[in-house]
């Protein structure tokens, strides 16, 4: 029998979060973000947290909600260009920010979940990112040493999931979610559709349930689009 990760809802799923903790949050822009968990973190009012997330949401949605309440002490991200409040808090020194290359961010999370303490990458050599980091040549090319990332909680969002914690993502909403699921001490998965055990084809599961500690059926997904670009329908 599968080990059940099912919890009743977002309140139970977020039990144990505390001030000063480090959180990982999946998503790229507003695509594939754990909307329910973010709202719960706002409601709980946890403070001085470090958030590892590719982006920082927009002013009134996604991680922007936590920034509004000054709940975040430090952000570790690759791109934060869509959020005025973020920029204001960073330039005023209220918010500590560690900007790192996107591929290094993804691999640092993957490494954290895979038990690899550090790795060498060419990304960022010769730039600010390399300051204070070990440099080593491989095949005549310089690389910098990047360390793994882990977190107290990882909050991820999937399209479908089952009681065993197995997850399937939809389209580009997958992004950072699978690596962050691996790297959380407690990984909370919210899913659009919780399906009975045995429904998901084992051949087609993206994140095995072993990486997930709590799963729940999310609700009221807003799924905002940041840049709505379309072709006209005529002809």
């Amino acid at each position: 029998m599968a080990i059940s990760k099912l919890v009743s809802g977002v309140e139970t799923a977020c039990m144990g979060v505390e001030d000063g903790m480090t959180f990982m949050l999946g998503g790229f822009g507003l695509c594939g973000i754990p909307e329910n968990c973010i709202e719960e973190l706002v409601r709980l009012g946890v403070k001085d947290v470090t958030c590892i997330s590719n982006n920082a949401g927009v002013d009134n949605f996604g991680l922007g909600r936590l920034l509004q309440g000054h709940q975040i002490r430090k952000m570790i991200s690759s791109y934060v260009g869509e959020n005025d409040e973020f920029e204001r808090q960073m330039l005023s020194g209220e918010l500590e920010v560690d900007l790192i290359p996107q591929g290094s961010l993804a691999e640092r999370c993957r490494a954290g979940g895979a038990g690899i303490p550090a790795f060498y990458t060419p990304a960022g050599f010769g730039t600010e990112v390399a300051e204070g980091k070990e440099v080593r040549d491989f095949d005549g090319k310089p690389h910098i040493l990047e360390s793994a990332l882990t977190s107290d909680f990882a909050f991820v969002k999937a399209w479908r999931g089952d009681e065993a914690g197995n997850l399937v993502f939809k389209a580009t909403a997958r992004n950072f979610n699978p690596m962050m699921a691996m790297a959380g001490k407690i990984t909370v998965a919210e899913v659009e559709e919780l399906v009975p055990l045995g429904t998901l084809d084992p051949n087609e599961i993206h994140t095995p349930g072993i990486f997930v500690q709590r799963i729940f059926q999310g609700d009221s997904y807003e799924k905002r689009i940041e840049q709505r670009t379309v072709r006209p329908l005529n002809n």
Binding site: F28, G29, L30, C31, G32, N54, E82, Q102, G103, L105, A106, E107, C109, R110, W159, F169, K170, A171, T172, A173, R174, N175, F176, N177, P178, M179, H206, K223, R224, I225, E226, Q227, R228, T229, V230
Partner: peptide, 24 residues
């Protein structure tokens, strides 16, 4: 589709033969 965007966060489509994958 809010779940189908490019790195500029613009809505896009997928052509036949397309594939989705994680950031790593």
């Amino acid at each position: 589709d809010a779940d189908l965007i490019n790195a500029g966060k613009q809505t896009i489509t997928a052509l036949p033969g397309a594939v989705y994958f994680d950031s790593a």
